[in-house]
Design a protein around this nucleic acid. Structure first.
Lengths: 259, 259
DNA sequence: TAAACAGTGACGGCGCGTGAGCGTTT
DNA sequence: TAAACGCTCACGCGCCGTCACTGTTT
């Protein structure tokens, strides 16, 4: 058998660096069939040149395609443009997952540093999906004025038992020495915006986030720490900072520049 | 309920950007339990400050830890060094997976280019685990002398029906104008090496691989193409090239420098 | 004849998604 | 009373790993 063109499952498996079980599975689902099956014993036999085809299959698999997708793309007759679109889809997905992986890595390294220095500061990076909001923007002189401004919006719009997400977008205008503050409240899917308020889309974005108590001083300190955390990891702020009220906690988000 | 400290599964799920089912699952396996369960209705209620804990849990999860591992590390009392070792393990795994992902990406982009130029050349990158081999090294003048050299080894060592992997390691010594050729044959786990031959470990390494016919000219051309393929992707050759006989096909491997 | 293979079939495991059927809250 | 939400239980999925039992090849 060795010098003939065919070999058994386990021989083929060893060459391909995979288990015989996997080969049987691929054959069963019609993804990769042996060159010959003995009708009497049902033994599967593979041809030498199938090694090359199998290598390609595994390469595509390693790119993140599911077995079903691969079968679609390879078994049925697909045109070159179709194949190209498929590969491009895999490519963008791969790029995204590498991005994700790098964020996780950065987080891990931060946590390891934290363990060294016994620092109590924790932050994570999360994707925040887009949300429709109603908001009310104003320039304020002092951080402490923000609370009054918030109440202005919420009392006009929502009842006390309203569970929609609420918070504030803000940034400091260095040149004008003013706080640009924009309290907001989430809008339901189809709910109308209250009179005098503009509905607005809070764009989906990755944020660095941490949590603080509701105390103004601690919140401000958290903002400072989070800014530093972001800088140290080579990210850049993009857009106004966000504070979201989570019961007795304040969630602090700094949107990150893509890339 | 809104202004109290507790909220229902779906409210908590929305805030955390996850489904209620996942939360129930985490509770069931004892990974993340709600702050309170109503003993009558069995409704789960979560506290606001659990949002922070959950964010951390998901960050660890995103780093590649399994739910079981996370439970081990977070539920039971673990010392700081233990936690650190765990994080470091996650870090090295993450680094490896990013590496893998980048290789896949490079392959994809190559295939996309191939589609553009309708080039028939295909290569993949694969990890080859270490193998014990017996080999016989010599300097040869011509590529065509290699075959005689091969026979020398194999006829002395193996029978015809021997299915062990066999091939040649070689590189061109530019300064001496000579081909350093080293035919090899795989050794079984505990099999002894034939007389006069040194047993040797072919180290585990990532290789760029392609396939060619057994024809010398085509093989040489494949080596050239593969070298270019490697250069274009920013990899570097590390160690002698490998040719492995796969029946009627020749598998050509160029070991890659780690990193 | 024994060892090393081949086959099929059933079950497990992760991390949930999906849905049925039923109770609870608003 | 209806709608929206909660509960449990059961099954499914992708991709195999791991038996157990039986037949085949060397």
């Amino acid at each position: 058998m060795t010098n003939a063109q065919l070999m058994t499952v386990s021989a083929f498996a060893r060459i391909c660096g995979i288990t015989a079980k996997t080969l049987r599975w691929y054959a069963d689902i019609g993804l990769f069939r042996p060159a010959f099956i003995d009708p009497r014993t049902r033994y599967r036999y593979y041809a030498w040149d199938q090694v090359r085809d199998f290598a390609r299959l595994r390469a595509i698999r390693a790119c993140g395609a599911s077995l079903t997708e691969i079968r679609r793309e390879l078994n049925v007759r697909r045109s070159a443009p179709e194949l190209k679109r498929f590969m491009q889809k895999l490519r963008t997905a791969k790029l995204r997952s590498i991005d994700e992986a790098r964020r996780s890595l950065a987080w891990l390294e931060g946590e390891l540093q934290n363990l060294e220095t016994a620092s109590p500061f924790h932050a994570t990076i999360t994707y925040c999906p887009p949300v429709r909001i109603a908001s009310l923007r104003a320039d304020l002189k002092h951080y402490s004025d923000v609370h009054a401004h918030e109440r202005l919006l919420w009392e006009s719009v929502a009842s006390r038992s309203d569970s929609r997400m609420r918070g504030v977008l803000w940034h400091r205008c260095a040149d004008r020495g003013v706080i640009d503050s924009e309290p907001f409240i989430e809008l339901g899917e189809h709910s109308r915006c209250a009179a005098g308020l503009q509905p607005k889309e809070l764009q989906g974005v990755h944020v660095a986030r941490t949590f603080s108590s509701l105390d103004d001083d601690e919140a401000e300190q958290s903002h400072v720490s989070l800014s530093r955390w972001i800088r140290e990891r080579g990210y850049r702020l993009s857009g106004p900072r966000r504070e979201i009220y989570r019961g007795m906690l304040l969630e602090i988000q700094h949107p990150l520049h893509p890339g």
